[in-house]
């Protein structure tokens, strides 16, 4: 027998629990059929390819100095990171409710597990797709300003997670919120600068889109990734402010609803 662990620290218990949830989650998400892993890469690649081809047809080779395929892939993957992390964390508590029977499993554990999975998937898929681009089309694929790139991803992902955690509470009282979520996610794809840059839009329309944090995040992400890309639209302070507001709300609601998450 290995490891009869009688006295574990809270942190050790959390680690064990997140690991157990992680394995379980991978099994249900990708397991069963190996195609699960394939789709994780093929889906965003396919979507990016469609837009890349569309833009090539109208004769565009680059957007703000960035080659079209690379522009599409970074935009699409980062947008997907935001929406997937949001919906996955929003449903983390409700779909793992049965497991809260065990006192080792705290409501935050499945949220954390899913965040780890989504963020890891993002970087793995990005590395694979950009690697392929570099290999076949010989683009320069490494982020020019790694730190700025990572900061943009971090602020976008953390905002998505905060909104997801708020939705954990909302879903307790109103399970139909999920339908609402699907309805608003689709138009977001078109107003977040996934397949165009802010500089392609007339400046007079910027105020109508500048409330959208995903747009800011994507612009910042591209600024970090491509040194030739400049954005007058993106405002990192706005993203940080939103983060602070949403995290304050997320943490208080999560704490407040903990008994409901566990017993309800």
């Amino acid at each position: 027998m290995t490891g009869k662990t009688l006295h574990r620290s809270s942190f050790q218990i959390m680690k064990d629990t997140v690991f157990a949830l992680f394995i379980r989650e991978l099994r249900t998400r990708f397991g069963g059929n190996r195609l699960g892993y394939f789709w994780a890469i093929a889906e965003p690649a396919g979507q990016a390819a469609v837009f890349a081809i569309l833009f090539s047809i109208i004769g565009r080779e680059s957007i703000s100095g960035v080659p079209v395929p690379v522009f599409m892939i970074t935009g699409m993957l980062t947008f997907k990171l935001f929406t997937k992390l949001l919906t996955q964390s929003a449903n983390a508590v409700i779909s793992n409710k049965g497991l809260m029977t065990y006192r080792q499993v705290e409501p935050i554990d499945p949220v954390l597990t899913r965040s780890i999975i989504e963020v890891t998937t993002y970087f793995v898929v990005l590395a694979i797709l950009m690697g392929l681009m570099g290999w076949f089309l010989s683009y320069d694929i490494f982020p020019d300003d790694l730190l700025e790139f990572l900061l943009a991803i971090a602020s976008l992902a953390s905002l998505s997670l905060a909104i997801g955690m708020i939705l954990c509470s909302v879903l307790e009282f109103w399970p139909d919120a999920n339908r609402f979520l699907t309805v608003i996610m689709t138009p977001l794809l078109f107003i977040s600068g996934v397949f165009y840059s802010a500089s392609m839009l007339p400046q007079q329309y910027w105020p109508y889109l500048s409330w959208n944090p995903i747009f800011h995040g994507l612009e910042l992400m591209r600024e970090g990734y491509f040194s030739e890309y400049r954005s007058d639209f993106a405002d990192p302070v706005y993203l940080i402010e939103l983060n602070l507001v949403f995290w304050a709300l997320a943490l208080s609601l999560f704490k407040l609803n903990r008994p409901r998450f566990i017993s309800g």
């Binding site: 290995t2 574990r8 065990y102």
Partner: peptide, 23 residues
């Protein structure tokens, strides 16, 4: 006390893991 969608084996695994057993 157990998860209905998971098999007996998966439940056994899960419960072992959260109790700190690695094997």
């Amino acid at each position: 006390g157990v998860q209905g969608q998971m098999s007996g084996r998966e439940n056994a695994r899960f419960i072992s893991r959260i109790h700190g057993y690695s094997d």
